[in-house]
């Protein structure tokens, strides 16, 4: 690395950037875990997650504020340029996406609780698959952030179409079932809402992937510019 040759300020800044990366990733880990658990709760109609989910969500909110402050502090203090600035800008955006994902996960946990009151309602296969797909999207979007891997980010963008398709089918399914058996309207609406939340989590994961793509491809363009000089 030859860190001894870098000026002190640059070294400080690099350390702070590393710290920021760790922070956003650990927040990502918390959000990812909450999403996985809320989807699991939806599957098993577990009503017990809501209280814990809300507590975690509060921690996520607090963390979001702190990460945002960190980003602004870094910009003000070090006035970063090029790749570093792009990284901080991406973190700012990803930060708010993660916070929204956390909110949605809490909503899903609430739907799971509400559904549990309706006894044995059959959760359609589409919603299960959708849950698995959304989990995988969230995981891959964060993984693409870790590795700044634009290929993986592109995969996430493509997976969003599948999730949208799942959601459309869920809509059709619910519409059909409500007509067939109007007494089941309430639980079916809960299912549809949960599906909607899942779809929005997938959108947030897509946004993260887009930010990562911009970040990673921006790097490559910058390197090319350096080579041309």
């Amino acid at each position: 690395m030859g860190s001894g040759k870098q000026p002190l300020l640059k070294r400080h800044f690099d350390r702070e950037l590393q710290q920021l990366k760790k922070r956003i990733l650990s927040m990502g880990g918390i959000v990812e875990d909450l999403i996985v658990r809320s989807i699991e709760a939806l599957r098993s109609r577990d009503r017990s997650l809501v209280a814990e989910a809300m507590r975690i969500e509060e921690a996520i909110d607090a963390e979001e504020v702190e990460i945002e402050e960190d980003c602004l502090k870094l910009i003000a203090l070090y006035q970063p340029v090029a790749g570093d600035l792009r990284f901080i800008a991406a973190v700012l955006k990803i930060n708010s996406e993660l916070e929204r994902m956390g909110d949605l996960a809490v909503h899903i946990a609430e739907r799971a609780r509400d559904l549990s009151a309706f006894g044995d309602i059959h959760v359609p296969t589409d919603l299960r698959r959708m849950g698995t797909d959304v989990q995988s999207m969230v995981r891959r979007s964060l993984e693409s952030l870790v590795n700044q891997d634009s290929e993986l980010a592109l995969q996430v963008l493509q997976a969003d179409n599948t999730v949208d398709e799942h959601h459309r089918r869920m809509f059709d399914f619910v519409a059909e079932q409500v007509q067939a058996d109007p007494t089941q309207t309430m639980p079916l609406l809960h299912l549809l809402t949960a599906s909607r939340y899942l779809e929005r989590i997938a959108d947030a994961a897509t946004n993260i992937a887009e930010d990562v793509y911009y970040l990673a491809e921006g790097e490559i363009i910058r390197h090319r510019a350096e080579l041309a000089e």
Binding site: S26, G28, G29, D33
Partner: peptide, 17 residues
């Protein structure tokens, strides 16, 4: 099977617990 050695822990295992 991605590279894990010499990376920070949160880059490898994000699991908060």
């Amino acid at each position: 099977s991605q590279r894990a050695e010499n990376r920070s822990l949160v880059e490898t295992v994000r699991q908060p617990v």
